[in-house]
Amino acid sequence: MASRAQHVFRWDLDKTYLRTEFDTARDLLKSAFETARDKKAYPGASALLRALRQTEEHRICIISGSPTQMRRVLAAKLALDGIEFDEFVLKNNLRNILRGRFRALRSQVPYKLPALLESRTHVLHTPPETLFGDDAEADAIVYSLYADILADRVTGEELSRILDAARAYDDELEWTMSLFRRIRRRDAVGRILIHLDRRSPTARFEVFGRRLVPIYNYFQAALILYADGLLTARQVLFIASEMLEDPDIEIATLANSLQDLLRRGRLSPEVASQLAHEARAAAQTGALAGRSHLPSFEEVAWAFTFRVRQLGTLPPPPALDEHPDLDYVSLVDAEYQRRRSKYGD
């Protein structure tokens, strides 16, 4: 049924929401036999998804490369984490195996791009979108391509060449092209957040322009979404406080994450101070009531202010294009070659 959502959030699962290893056959096997309780989400990811869901008009769509056979366990995991979603798309790899299409098992663009476009046809209007992916596969490329298609910056001819470079099967190409023709154009993707699961150098993503922000954790995602006006200061505080319950995360981790975004020019000092101002007001009204074991707001605010001060005068941020002219054919071909040399696809 078509949705009247005012904003769409699209999430990948493995390595974006869930800590998953699938680099080796053993990892894949282990992941396949894990129960919902065994599966672990990244700190703050579920708090962020729940915060996004608090606004009724927000639509949560999950598009994952995990096989359809894992739907039950993945849906159970999301339910355990209190995540409600509107759409849940998985990859039908059994069908690929039965048809002898082994290249499709690990393919990224030919699977994910049509899945995104098809999902877009399920919304009535042309709502803005925020996309969440990771640095393990080709999310930065696929999401940017999807964003540029919606914004009418990619022609049919170009898309056909891109799908050729991605070694798409004929029916995948035809299906994607038919969706491409049907889709309503609007520069809708305002933000792409790439979770740095592999800790890839952030400079690697500068080519994708300002729209795409590499993040080390979901506190950084929350800060960016606060700057984008999609989360309130109070929601950011809740995400931070949930993250602080993880034994590996301390105030210093969050303060450094803030400093990292400022240093990379992905968050302005003005937005950081506005957040501090609003967060203080939220804390005073009892936003963190019932979480007395956590550090006081004053302690958190001091750590954050200190990190900002330690940076000194901020250098000018790297000049990133608003709408970079990306050579998708080369990007997709390089990604295919990389995957081929890694997995022998």
Binding site: L196, R198, R199, S200, P201, T202, A203, E206, Y216, N217, F219, Q220, A252, T253, L254, A255, N256, S257, Q259, D260, R263, R264, R307, Q310, L311, G312, T313, P318
Partner: peptide, 17 residues
């Protein structure tokens, strides 16, 4: 830092000229 693999949440920069 932007060119190397690292964990940004475990790095603090203290500026000094």
């Amino acid at each position: 830092l932007s060119r190397v693999r690292h964990d940004g949440s475990r790095v603090r920069v203290h500026h000094t000229p």
